[in-house]
Simulated assay, not measured.
Amino acid sequence: MRHYPSDSPEAKARVVALALLADGAIDLNEIEALERHEVVSRLGLDHPRFDRVVREFCEDMLVSANRGESGQIELDEDTIDALLADIQDPLTRKRMLRAVLDIVNADGRLADGEAVLVNQAMKAWNLDLYDVANGARLRRSERRPLGMPSADC
């Protein structure tokens, strides 16, 4: 896998890409959730740069991932932990978990791969659902870029 600096927009975008692909495919509902929650701009990226990170992530997966019994490409736990470890800032971790939850819940069902990702992110980042549920849904006027501290921190 490519290396991006910790907490960089690209490292955050790669976690979003991981969430998009956790169920094996990018769903239209997930794309709509990205737009509705303004995830790409909140990552600090424009759409072409975000698309580039997603494409690079897919390329890296083809090189380094395993094929599961179903034929789908799967990342091992250590690789996922390494990708999650690129998010260091505690507030950014909370906001990234919120973004991951918005994406994986976009179609109204939680696939096995999505559940595994959410569980692994919560363990790696030492978070629980309460950490992101309490005040995580911000009004549009209160939204800040993912990873940017608020004045009340």
Rank of each mutant, 00 (worst) to 15 (best):
D81S: 12
R2E: 15
L91N: 05
D76S: 09
S70H: 05
F50G: 04
E142C: 02
A99M: 08
K123G: 02
K94I: 06
H47E: 15
Q120L: 14
S141P: 02
H3E: 14
L45W: 04
L28R: 15
D81A: 08
E114C: 05
E10Y: 04
T79G: 03
V104C: 10
R140P: 02
H47A: 15
A22F: 00
I87Q: 03
P149M: 08
R14E: 12
L97A: 09
R144C: 02
L146K: 01
R109M: 12
P9T: 03
I73W: 15
E35T: 15
N126K: 15
R36E: 08
A133V: 00
V100Q: 04
V40H: 04
H3R: 13
Y130H: 13
L34V: 05
Y4N: 04
A25T: 12
D7M: 00
A106T: 06
L110S: 01
F57H: 11
L18W: 03
R140W: 07
A17L: 06
S8A: 02
V116W: 11
L83F: 13
D23A: 07
S41W: 07
L20H: 06
S6E: 09
D27S: 14
D128H: 14
D112Q: 15
Y130I: 13
K123C: 03
S6M: 06
A11T: 07
D46Q: 13
D128I: 13
T79C: 08
D131N: 12
D102S: 07
L75E: 11
V100M: 03
